[in-house]
Design a binder for these strands. Structure first.
Lengths: 137, 137
DNA sequence: CAGCATCCACGTTGATACTG
DNA sequence: CAGTATCAACGTGGATGCTG
């Protein structure tokens, strides 16, 4: 892992001349995806499925705190985006298995980068929040 | 850039024994940060400030579509988390400059990873969405 | 087992108007 | 210039009960 990010490659820094071109950001795909994954449960589900396929109730019990409704919605959303595959086994009782598609699996890498950042800096963020709260008083 | 992510390092895959430990995910810091940055404007603001400091109205005009209210709230949130610094210059008329803190700047790296993923796979996601929409019909 | 349907509470976003 | 205040609208998330 590199220590610093003095220069940042990729689209984040690349296409941004100083005068700011504006409308470019309106339909910014990065924001789009970050929002998709930024809901309350998507990351959790992706990480879980990243380990191995899971059954519906397996996820339901595994996440603890999620409602059936939200789990269903989250899985549907991820499946719609091609990140998760849903397979129904016509057994009795019927079983449904969810797994990461190759596309979904490829998202684990970038997610790891973010996760590493969080782990490395969560104390800084927590300290900043405390400082801000104290400043309010 | 590496082609595949057959094994994914970092916390995303690391601390997840198969039986699923559950409560661990409730206060998952990754979800926490992803949500913070997952709102409608934060990423845009961070990317803009990543290029250079901006004045308030400069950002307001630059993003186009954001309301004063949302820009203020977004900036305040980011400042609270220590990602953005706010500096007031006691000139006439008063000027306020926003810039990324070192902490905020360090987030550009992970954000780049995500951005690269989005750029590389947005067609796949778009195709999956279209396929899902077609399947509904 | 794996959902869907309904109702409800809440937070977030936005339009608009006003201020130091 | 750089906000704050207020009100309205919407989306998200949760509880509960029912179904194939």
């Amino acid at each position: 892992m590199s220590g610093t990010h003095t220069d940042v490659p990729s689209v984040v820094s690349a296409p941004l001349p100083s005068p700011v071109p504006a409308e470019e950001y309106e339909q910014c795909p990065v924001t789009d995806i970050v929002r998709r994954v930024g809901d309350k449960w998507s990351v959790l589900v992706i990480v879980l499925l990243g380990r191995r396929p899971h059954r519906f109730n397996e996820l339901h019990r595994g996440i603890e705190g999620i409602s059936q409704r939200m789990l269903t919605r989250t899985l549907r959303g991820l499946a719609t985006d091609g990140l998760v595959r849903r397979e129904v086994f016509p057994t009795v009782p019927p079983g449904v298995e969810y797994s990461l598609t190759p596309l979904g699996h490829s998202l684990l890498g970038p997610l790891s980068a973010l996760a590493d950042w969080v782990v490395a800096h969560r104390d800084d963020v927590a300290a900043a929040r405390r400082a801000a709260a104290a400043a309010d008083t």
